[in-house]
Amino acid sequence: MSYDLAVWDGERPRDNHQAGTVYDEFYERYLESDDVVVPPAPRIVGYVEALIDRYPDDGSGVGSGAWASPPVINEASGPIVYLLMSYSKAEEVSEYAASLAREHGLVCYDPQAESLRS
């Protein structure tokens, strides 16, 4: 079982409805399509690197067991990364992931709650 967040590079949507629309478009365009592989944008790569510095995705270190589907960078494409966190660590990791997204000027969205994370 996992808890998921989406983080993307772009303007912050004005509300949860607009965020859901952007999320749906990005998910379909960059994550669902196998037709074209789009390398992750530099800001997304920097974000993921900072995230796995704190919560490693290789099974070693403090964050071991944080990810439901490592390596995290494999869930990134273009301006978006889809984070699949182990449910047991979801509260801690999602708080940090949302905070780090703010620091990096990225948008953090919770697809389960259909809401922006601040």
Rank of each mutant, 00 (worst) to 15 (best):
L100A: 05
Y23R: 08
D4F: 06
G105L: 07
S64V: 04
E49F: 00
L116G: 10
Y87S: 12
E95Y: 04
S115I: 08
L106Y: 03
I80H: 00
S115M: 13
D24Y: 03
Y87C: 07
R54A: 05
E25M: 15
S60I: 05
G78Y: 11
I80Y: 02
Q18I: 06
S77H: 10
S64F: 03
P39H: 05
C108Q: 02
D53V: 07
Y47N: 06
V81M: 02
G78M: 13
V62R: 14
Q18M: 11
A98Q: 06
R29A: 14
D15Q: 06
V48H: 01
S118T: 12
S99N: 10
Y96L: 04
F26R: 12
S2C: 13
A50S: 15
P56Q: 02
E32D: 13
S115V: 13
E25F: 13
A6Q: 07
G65R: 00
E25H: 12
K89G: 00
L84V: 09
V22W: 02
V72K: 05
A19H: 07
G20Y: 00
S2E: 10
S99Q: 11
E103L: 11
V81Y: 00
L116P: 08
V22C: 03
W8P: 04
A97V: 08
Y96E: 07
G61S: 04
V48W: 00
S69N: 11
I44N: 07
Y109C: 02
Y30Q: 01
E91V: 11
L100G: 00
G20V: 09
V7K: 01
S88G: 09
E25R: 14
A76N: 05
V38Y: 14
V36L: 15
L83G: 02
E103I: 05
G59K: 05
A76T: 11
I73T: 07
Y30K: 01
E75Y: 08
E32V: 14
T21E: 15
A41Q: 12
E91A: 12
A41C: 07
A19P: 08
Q112I: 13
P111A: 09
L106Q: 03
W8F: 15
R29W: 10
Y82W: 15
A97G: 03
P40G: 10
E25L: 14
W67S: 06
G105E: 06
G61H: 02
V72R: 03
V107E: 09
T21H: 07
W67L: 01
A41L: 11
G105A: 04
L5D: 02
A66D: 02
P39I: 07
E75L: 10
Y30P: 00
Y55G: 01
S2D: 11
V36K: 13
R117I: 08
A19Q: 05
E91T: 11
A101D: 04
Q112L: 13
A50L: 12
E32F: 13
P13Y: 09
I80F: 05
S64W: 02
A19E: 05
V38H: 15
R14Y: 04
